[in-house]
Every structure is written in structure tokens, then in C-alpha cells.
């Protein structure tokens, strides 16, 4: 896959962040950015005919293993951020009865 296509995924995520008026949609926009970045990182190191980075499986030309190892970390980080953000938005809903940014942020302090 072309790195440019994956960068479009990142930009879609940023577009979502800059336009969505709903907390849940913002959480998913962050998730989309993250998926885009993960795909981008793996794609930039990929090339035609690259073998998997396991010694003994592919004899000659392997793809770079470092991005794959780093992206495992990013995936774990991303899933925890998503989980925490969703739990916070549940709590926001419990307190304000809505997950629209404008209504939630518009209330005076102390509800």
C-alpha cells in the first residue's frame, strides 16, 4: 500500500478532530489518527519482495523489524488511551446527560 494513502487516513482523523462536536466521535478520531500512523510507519519501511523479519524464514531481504516492534507499543498505548477516554466520556455523560462538547463545556463550573 502506498504511504500517501495511509497519510490520508491520518488527515481524516485530524479532520474529524477539528469538526466533530461529539466526545465519542473525537475519541474515534484520535483512534483513526493512530491507526493511520501505525500503517504509515509500517508502510514506509515496506518494499516489494520484502520478507518477514524472522531468521530462517526469508533468506535474503527482510523488512525492517524495528518499526514493527515500536508499533506494538503504539498499539498498546493507543488501546489504553481509547479505553480511558471512553470511560471518562461515560462519566461525563453521567454528570451532564450529554456527550456534545458544546453542551458539556458550556455549563458553568460546579454544574
Amino acid at each position: 500500500m502506498n504511504p500517501l494513502l495511509t497519510f490520508i487516513v491520518v488527515l481524516i482523523g485530524f479532520y474529524g478532530l477539528a469538526t466533530s462536536k461529539n466526545i465519542i466521535k473525537s475519541v474515534f478520531s484520535v483512534t483513526i489518527i493512530e491507526s493511520g500512523i501505525i500503517l504509515l510507519f509500517l508502510n514506509l519501511g515496506n518494499f516489494e519482495g520484502g520478507g518477514i523479519p524472522i531468521v530462517g524464514e526469508s533468506l535474503t531481504n527482510i523488512v525492517d523489524p524495528l518499526p514493527q516492534a515500536l508499533m506494538i507499543t503504539t498499539i498498546v498505548i493507543g488501546s489504553t488511551v481509547t479505553a480511558l477516554a471512553l470511560m471518562l466520556s461515560i462519566k461525563v455523560f453521567h454528570h451532564y446527560g450529554t456527550v456534545e462538547w458544546a453542551e458539556v463545556l458550556g455549563r458553568k463550573d460546579g454544574e
Partner: peptide
């Protein structure tokens, strides 16, 4: 665990994660 601390936390978390 008050309403305004939750909304501040999610605002902080999402903007900084971006």
C-alpha cells in the same frame, strides 16, 4: 470525580494525545 474534573480530563487527554 466531579463533573467539571471529568470534562477537563477528557479535554486534556484528547488534545494532548493528538
Amino acid at each position: 470525580k466531579a463533573g467539571d474534573s471529568f470534562r477537563a480530563a477528557i479535554y486534556y487527554l484528547l488534545l494532548n494525545t493528538a
